[in-house]
Amino acid sequence: MIRVLIVCSWGMSTSLLVESMLEAAAARNYTLSVEALSAGEYMDRLDECDVVLIAPQIRHLRKSIERLAQEAGKPVALIEPFHYATMNGEAVLEQVLLLLQETQEGQAQP
């Protein structure tokens, strides 16, 4: 089970991406849960996720989100704007998997 937290603006456009990610995950036999929350709401949910993604339209908050995510020990990255634009769940899922892989490798050799 991979739990993804997407921090976005008002959650409207991200909900479309979430659907596409769930489809992509189902096609590749991953169990995925994705939660899209606004920049004011995500903090309390940091502990209950594995990966944090940032929607491109709030990249001005990137630093503060990255700091909180790192404090909680979660890998974090900005969603590639074009993938976000085309609601490319497949590519974003790939990004999530890559992030998780990198974290595991990092933990293996401290």
Partner: peptide, 9 residues
């Protein structure tokens, strides 16, 4: 009235 696909695409 959602246009993130336009803005970033």
């Amino acid at each position: 009235n959602i246009n993130e696909p336009v803005t970033f695409g």
